[in-house]
Simulated scan of single mutants.
Amino acid sequence: MICKGIILFLSLSFSLYISANNSDEAIYTRSFIAMGSDFQITIITTSKQRADSLLNLAYSEVDRIEKLISSWDKHSETSRINENAGKSVQKISGELYDLIFRSIKISILTQGAFDITFGSGNTDFWKFNPDVEFLPDDSTVKSSLKLIGYDKIVLNPKDTSILLRHVGMKIGFGAIGKGYAADRVAAVLKSSQVKSGVINAGGDIVCWGKQLSGNDWSIGIANPEMADLAFSYLKISDMAVVTSGNYEKYFIIDGVEYCHIIDPRTAMPVTNNVSSVTVISRIGEFADAIATAIFILGEETGIYLVDDVEDLECLILLKDGRIITSRGIDLEHD
């Protein structure tokens, strides 16, 4: 699953180009830190007063979501679930229940490459820096797998309750939470009659409507080795775009590069030929989860999965410089 350190790099993986004209409407933006990431909310509206009210509403929604899904906030529902793992069934809100249910469905779809129980395993023995000289022994790696597995989550739809089967299990939403938050903020703003906007949740992009020029939004896609420079871009509207990448955090042993993204099925770092994965979907949470899963699955299985799912596209940049895209991708270059 994606490591926390990738969040900072994901925020650099997109360049957002916004144009303006002399319309009565204008672009208003607010940036803040939430969920351990940089958030930027951009909307088009008619006055600063209205923009301030709407951006306050957006911030409040992000704060609400964070308090719901945070595993660091001891008062959150998620923390309560984790504290009672292997001990007792926990009644939870319908919203959190539904998010967990959808997460399990994505786990099934991705053959376990996405798994919200990944935090149950102790993978602190992985240190991703060039000074690493030895791999941990097999017994250490295998022991970290004992508590990982979405199939160890028991849900009861009759009373929206959950049980984690074993003491020590944990769920976490690091690989889906920002996408979900972006979806929710977009929904709140749309319900307040905001016709155009972009949510950048630590690099998870959700956009709708048009730029002031009337054109679609342009989302630049950066090479992981040149994160400030877009090598191509997508013109999109009413879509989500998320990138998962191997951004300079890796080590090499015996000629094999071990990237910082860890496969929850093996507790081992990914060693395939993928450098970055960009996913386009109509749903931010889905794009968020699928991007990391495809990185783990690799280009062949990843493309096969994407081409089999409606309204899902991806671009995979390989370490050897090749670019692989799903059938519906339409890239533009400068």
Rank of each mutant, 00 (worst) to 15 (best):
I283R: 08
H260S: 09
A201V: 00
D151M: 00
A240R: 03
A230S: 14
L55G: 10
L16R: 12
E285R: 05
R50V: 07
N223G: 03
E133W: 00
D308T: 08
R282L: 07
D320C: 03
H260L: 07
D52F: 08
M1S: 13
I6A: 15
A51I: 02
G94N: 15
D334M: 03
F251H: 05
V62L: 03
G177W: 04
T278N: 12
D311G: 01
D238P: 02
I236L: 14
L164W: 02
D24A: 05
L16C: 02
V277W: 14
V62I: 11
S244T: 13
L164R: 04
I221G: 05
I153E: 11
I18K: 15
I162R: 07
M169D: 04
E332Y: 13
N56M: 04
L312G: 05
A293K: 09
M226K: 14
R30Y: 05
S232P: 00
G119H: 09
F9Y: 13
S15N: 15
I171H: 07
L96T: 07
F118M: 09
F173Y: 11
S19I: 01
S60T: 05
K74W: 01
N223P: 02
G321F: 01
L305I: 00
I176Y: 01
P136W: 14
L147M: 04
E83K: 15
I27Y: 09
K105V: 02
V154T: 13
G214A: 08
G172F: 06
M268I: 00
I323D: 10
L315A: 06
R165C: 07
T243I: 03
R184W: 01
R265T: 01
A51Y: 10
R50Q: 13
S71A: 11
D73C: 09
D38G: 05
L331Y: 14
D183N: 14
G202F: 08
T110C: 11
D204Y: 09
W208Y: 11
P269D: 05
V309E: 12
G112F: 03
D63Q: 11
V306I: 15
T45Y: 03
I116F: 01
G284H: 11
S107P: 04
V185A: 06
G209F: 02
H166V: 01
I43V: 14
R50M: 04
F39Q: 02
D204V: 06
P224H: 12
I236G: 07
K105Y: 10
A227F: 13
A182T: 03
A175T: 05
T78P: 00
A58N: 09
A51E: 07
I236K: 12
H333C: 04
V270A: 12
G174V: 10
S60K: 15
S275I: 00
I33Q: 14
P130E: 13
E95L: 04
I100H: 03
I329E: 07
S60C: 01
A289K: 12
E332K: 15
F101T: 01
I283S: 12
C314I: 07
I296W: 10
I316G: 04
T278G: 06
Q193P: 00
R64A: 11
F251W: 08
G220E: 07
